[in-house]
C-alpha cells in the first residue's frame, strides 16, 4: 500500500531548554556520527570543529540568584526571508557549495565543491559554520571507527550540521524498497536527538500534523533565535524562563519579547 506524499517537508527541531542539562551527549553523538575530527588542544572554541555547540548562558545575577541555561545550537537550517530557501548562507555561496533542499528544507553543504571562501560563515549569525583550518588527523587506529556514510572533510572547506542528512537518505532508501513514499516519524531521527539522554531534542517534519514537532512548535514556551533578523530558523526552543527568551534575540530596553510584531513568527 502506497501512502500519499502530499506535502513538502520541513524538517525541524524543537529543543526543550527546560529539559537540557548541558550534558554534551548531543555534541559527542554528532562527532561520532559525522566523522568530526578532534585535535590535541580544542580549547580555542573559535577554531574548533563542532556542528553542535551547547552554549552556557547566564542571567548575570550575582550569587545566589545566578541562573544558567544550556542552549544547544546546531545549524538552524534557516528558511530565510520569504521561505523560499533564501537562507543567509545559501544565497551568498558563489559556487553553490551549500544549497537549500526544497524537498526537506535542509541546508546542504557539499565539501568537495566548497573552495573555502568563508562568505557563508560571514553570513551566518549563529556561527553554525566551521572551517577546516587543519587537515583532519585520526591518531592510532581511530580511522577504523570512521563511518562510510559521511565523508571526512579535507582541509580548507567549510562544514556544518546537516540534520544528519545521510540518515534521511538511508530512511528513504528503506522506504523505497518497502514501496512507501512516506517515512515514519521515528525512521528519520538525527544522531543528537537520538542520543540526548533527557529527551530534550525532538526532531521531525514541522509540516506534518502527526509529528511531535508540529505541536511543540506551537507551545507557548516556543521561540527561535534571532527571529527578528528574518532568518526563519527551523530549530525551535522551549523555555519557561523569561530571561532565556529575552536572550534569544535582541531587544531595545522598552521592548518585550513576544510582543514584538513579527511577520514570520512560527513560519507556517
Amino acid at each position: 500500500m502506497k501512502e500519499k506524499n502530499n506535502h513538502t517537508k520541513r524538517f525541524g527541531m524543537v529543543i526543550d531548554l527546560d529539559k537540557c542539562t548541558g550534558c554534551g551527549s548531543c555534541m559527542v553523538a554528532c562527532y561520532a556520527e559525522n566523522n568530526v575530527p578532534f585535535r590535541v588542544d580544542e580549547t580555542n572554541k573559535l577554531d574548533s570543529l563542532s556542528w553542535l555547540v551547547v552554549h552556557k548562558i547566564t542571567n548575570g545575577k550575582p550569587y545566589p540568584n545566578t541562573e544558567i541555561c544550556y542552549l544547544p545550537m546546531p545549524c538552524m537550517q534557516c528558511d530565510g526571508i520569504g521561505k523560499h530557501g533564501h537562507s543567509p548562507c545559501v544565497s551568498v555561496c558563489p559556487a553553490v557549495a551549500t544549497d537549500y533542499d526544497h524537498e526537506t528544507g535542509i541546508v546542504s553543504q557539499i565539501y568537495t565543491r566548497c573552495f573555502g571562501c568563508r562568505y557563508c560563515m560571514a553570513a551566518c549569525p549563529y556561527h553554525a559554520r566551521k572551517f577546516n583550518w587543519w587537515d583532519p588527523v585520526w591518531p592510532a587506529d581511530m580511522k577504523k571507527y570512521l563511518s562510510p556514510n559521511v565523508s571526512p572533510r579535507m582541509r580548507g572547506v567549510v562544514e556544518k550540521c546537516s540534520f544528519c542528512f545521510h540518515r534521511y537518505q538511508q530512511a528513504k532508501d528503506k522506504a523505497f524498497y518497502e514501496k512507501r513514499e512516506e517515512l515514519y516519524e521515528d525512521e528519520y531521527q538525527t544522531a543528537c536527538a537520538e542520543a540526548c539522554p533527557t529527551g530534550a531534542i525532538t526532531f521531525g517534519d514541522l509540516n506534518n500534523k502527526n509529528h511531535a514537532v508540529y505541536k511543540l512548535k506551537k507551545d507557548p514556551r516556543a521561540f527561535r533565535l534571532l527571529e527578528r533578523l528574518h532568518t526563519n530558523p527551523k530549530v525551535y526552543y522551549l523555555t519557561s524562563k523569561s530571561w532565556v527568551r529575552r536572550a534569544g534575540d535582541n531587544y531595545l530596553a522598552n521592548e518585550e519579547p513576544g510582543k514584538i510584531k513579527q511577520e514570520m513568527v512560527h513560519g507556517h
Binding site: C23, G24, S25, M27, M142, C196, G199
Partner: peptide, 11 residues
C-alpha cells in the same frame, strides 16, 4: 539516550 562518556566509547 547515552551520556557523553558512553557515546564516545569507540575512542
Amino acid at each position: 539516550g547515552l551520556c557523553p562518556l558512553g557515546m564516545s566509547g569507540l575512542q
